[in-house]
Design a protein around this nucleic acid. Sequence first.
DNA 1: AACGCTGCTGGGCAGGTGCACAGCAGCGGC
DNA 2: GCCGCTGCTGTGCACCTGCCCAGCAGCGTT
Lengths: 205, 205
Amino acid sequence: MATLPSSRRLGAPDSKTRARLVAAAERLLLEEGYAAVTSRRVGAAAGLKPQLVHYYFRTMDDLFLEVFRRRAEENLARFERTVAKGGSLRDLWQFSAELRGARFNIEFAALANHRKTIRAEVAHYAERFRAAQLEALRDALDGTDPHGRPPPVAVLLMVTGLSQVLAIEEELGVTAGHSEAVAFVEELIARLEPTASRGDPGPPV
Amino acid sequence: MATLPSSRRLGAPDSKTRARLVAAAERLLLEEGYAAVTSRRVGAAAGLKPQLVHYYFRTMDDLFLEVFRRRAEENLARFERTVAKGGSLRDLWQFSAELRGARFNIEFAALANHRKTIRAEVAHYAERFRAAQLEALRDALDGTDPHGRPPPVAVLLMVTGLSQVLAIEEELGVTAGHSEAVAFVEELIARLEPTASRGDPGPPV
DNA sequence: AACGCTGCTGGGCAGGTGCACAGCAGCGGC
DNA sequence: GCCGCTGCTGTGCACCTGCCCAGCAGCGTT
């Protein structure tokens, strides 16, 4: 499965310079969109020579993939940590309600539309993240009254969708109804998961 | 408010050739992403000379704006028509559940992130569409039991988000949980709005 | 017959792009 | 002292980009 050998010599994957390039590419992607991520501009943004981009990455798509993977892995790890230290409904909601990364998601969704290697990676990550979320949500809902409640996976998709829309619209400057929607979700959580702010924080068995 | 005069001579706004260019640009946008919408490629896709793009549009952004407006206006008109001939909850849901235009939305969301004239247009349209949807939703909910129901605008944002996520993921090939989510929404609608398939379709006052 | 308007086009410019290739300096191992 | 490896760079190529400009052919007015 090793990438079939190419004549071109490539830099070490754990290079510090390489990491700087990836970071610069990510900044550019977020601030100016994927079309702005060119070898010249990435180089300039990192304070390095443009050729280094091609020294560390066979193609620009490889760069995009690396940018995506880094952020995706970090996100997944952060999620696992959130779950590990509690993982209440409130925690899960706050995690998906963070609007950091909404722009990121849009850019990659757009990229994925027409570059198949990227699409595959995005799809793969989306599945992994969904599975982790679903497990955490099931655990968090465990013990609450299941009466008349939609299936967890449906809840997940709706909440995911809601936070995406809120984030995108906020970027656009459109915020009508946002506070009502947020208030509704939070109220719902409060009902399902009586706050642990008074008394023992331990979960009742 | 007239665009301040430029030396350059531009083609008639109602030209048939112009319309062909807009249509070709839209196709390209959907199939290959906004980065593929260049004067050369639009010209080729329309079977016309590339210079015609600059003859009919002062800048490429103007082309993008025209593509967006055309689709946005058409969408709005189609929505009004849907509302006019019924506008039940089921109709509204089906309208937003159409995945046609999800890719379109993504591309323009990405474009809007870093081109302000486009952002303004997208924001403006988003507000108009939201207002129309909200009014229609309020009408459709009128008469149903408001007990324990979230505010209409919250419902709207959640459903909008849900359908966006479903559409994006479908493009990616990720469909886990989709059928459950759709089933849930449809069941909810069925409960609120007993089907008119038997007997009189008139709304009870 | 002269004129102006309109749709369209050939040619071109300055700039940006991905990527390749040959080579250099510094390094550790022999 | 030589060798091979590594990080890096100067140069360059073929190609694409937005946009401009001068001009042409056909047209309806006058």
